[in-house]
């Protein structure tokens, strides 16, 4: 088993790591780089808790090999706030009580940010379908949808 050396950009900063060939990006982020904001809920792409962006594209990091991201730009929840200034989505989730246990929250925020970049004014239905791959078992999604709508409105106004 030959380890692989990878250089990538993570949340805007250069990062290098060595991983085993079968190791997923999720395992690399959590276990080698300490980015435990990226959560594992299933490891099979069914829950979305491990959502990150790779070169701007929303993916499940459990379905990407660490070796695949050579030269890529990766975005995780840890890179969402601007220093101590929360992203409007993050603030909106707190203001709308859009989290209960909070374990799905990082993945949902990353996914919602990807949505608003592509579509700044999504309908409720568009939000619900875009986030269909992010399971939340606590909230019934109601306040999550509201939080995304509120943040979108605020971001359009900004």
């Amino acid at each position: 088993m030959k380890s692989i050396h990878v250089a990538a950009t993570i949340n805007g900063d250069p990062a290098e790591f060595v991983c085993e060939p079968q190791e997923t990006l999720l395992d690399v982020l959590r276990n080698r780089l300490g980015l435990t904001g990226v959560k594992e809920g299933c490891g099979t792409g069914d829950c979305g808790a491990c959502s990150v962006t790779v070169n701007g594209r929303l993916v499940c990091s459990c379905l990407v090999l660490g070796g695949e991201v050579q030269g890529a730009e990766i975005g995780t929840i840890e890179g969402m706030a601007d220093a101590d200034r929360l992203h409007p989505l993050q603030q909106s989730f707190i203001d709308n009580a859009a989290l209960q246990c909070g374990v799905c929250t990082p993945g949902i925020l990353v996914a919602a940010e990807a949505l608003l970049k592509k579509n700044p004014d999504p309908t409720e239905t568009e939000i619900r379908y875009w986030l269909a791959g992010n399971l939340c078992r606590c909230t019934g999604y109601d306040k999550i949808v509201q939080a995304v709508q509120d943040a979108a409105q605020q971001m359009r106004g900004a």
């Binding site: 979305g48 594209r57 993916v59 499940c60 379905l63 996914a111 990807a114 875009w130 791959g133 992010n134």
Partner: peptide, 9 residues
């Protein structure tokens, strides 16, 4: 096929 995330790949 799959979720938005899966569609990315």
């Amino acid at each position: 096929i799959g979720s938005t995330q899966v569609q990315g790949r």
